[in-house]
């Protein structure tokens, strides 16, 4: 039983990470109906941005709290800028193209970003030990051990998600985002600058992905150029699980997936070898039996 709860809490940590990345998928999909396949790489590059700052720029005398804050900020900015750049250069010219085109482009962007880091980052093919800037230590909650880092990951993720929610549901820009997601043409007629809204959406997704990159480094150092691929796929699964386009759903989906994965790794025979397959199994099951996801509303086909 104790082991069960331990896996459960590990799943929560993992889930927080997936949820942060999933939000980027879900928002972008909600607005432009594109599976931003390169989102995992945006997350990965964010982690490298944070690593670069720490490794090459920050003086080692800097107190680790401040360093962590700066690393986090720079990682978020890196990802956000990259996301905006990719949107502008790769996706925007294809806005009215047949559906397959942007998806294939996204795959190309994803490969190009991975390879850029591998080839052009100093010694980029080798994993980089991520700086551990958070105090070590554990809390024991009735036999379940959580590190301080775990708690930090969960709480930071929750704070960011609540901030996002507030932004989307309370601010004028957020309202414009929701309007664009509902009906871009009408939104444009109502004076919404949809191009700007789309960029903002990518930037928001990027900010969260960058933060996730740092958290990934904290719980699973080292980072390398490949971490984006699997993480991205799992986060996408989380977004679909929750009901794509639905912000609350992405969070719920992220945590659900994290927990399923942690439990399955423990309890399915040969589980750790199959670890990365559970997400796909979940994805297939969800799409087959409830394609609209946990919170998705049933979408009527346009007749």
């Amino acid at each position: 039983m104790q082991q069960f709860f331990q896996q459960l809490s590990d799943g929560l940590v993992l889930g927080a990470l997936y949820a942060l990345i999933a939000l980027g998928y879900t928002m972008v999909y909600g607005i432009v109906q594109l599976i931003n396949f390169a989102h995992g790489e945006i997350f990965m590059v964010g982690a490298f941005g944070g690593y670069t700052l720490y490794h090459y720029v920050l003086p080692s005398s800097l107190p680790s709290g401040i360093a962590l804050l700066l690393v986090l900020l720079v990682a978020m900015l890196t990802s956000a800028l990259l996301a905006a750049f990719v949107e502008r250069v790769a996706y925007r010219p294809l806005r009215n193209a047949p559906r397959l085109a942007p998806l294939i482009t996204a795959i190309g962007v994803s490969i190009a970003l991975q390879e850029s880091i591998r080839l052009f980052y100093p010694n980029g093919s080798v994993g980089k030990p991520f700086p551990q800037l958070f105090p070590r230590g554990t809390v024991d909650l009735g036999g379940v051990t959580l590190t301080y880092v775990d708690l930090f990951v969960i709480s930071l993720a929750l704070v960011l998600m609540l901030t996002l929610r507030t932004f989307v549901f309370r601010s004028a820009t957020g309202r414009a985002m929701r309007a664009t997601a509902q009906d871009p043409d009408t939104a444009r007629l109502m004076g919404v600058d949809t191009d700007r809204i789309i960029v903002i959406t990518f930037v928001l997704g990027g900010l969260l992905a960058g933060a996730a990159g740092v958290l990934q480094g904290m719980i699973a150092s080292p980072i390398d150029f490949k971490i984006g691929f699997i993480a991205g796929l799992k986060a996408f699964t989380a977004a679909v699980l929750g009901g794509i386009g639905n912000i609350t759903g992405a969070v719920l989906g992220g945590f659900t997936l994290g927990i399923v994965e942690a439990l399955a790794t423990q309890y399915v025979p040969n589980g750790s070898a199959l670890k990365d397959s559970f997400a796909f199994v979940v994805l297939v099951l969800v799409l087959v039996f409830r394609p609209t996801g946990l919170l998705g509303e049933s979408v009527r086909s346009r007749a």
Binding site: L94, I104, T105, I107, G108, V109, I111, A112, Q114
Partner: peptide
């Protein structure tokens, strides 16, 4: 290869 995909689609 990745860049080729992007440029081709564009």
């Amino acid at each position: 290869f990745g860049l080729l995909l992007v440029i081709l689609m564009r």
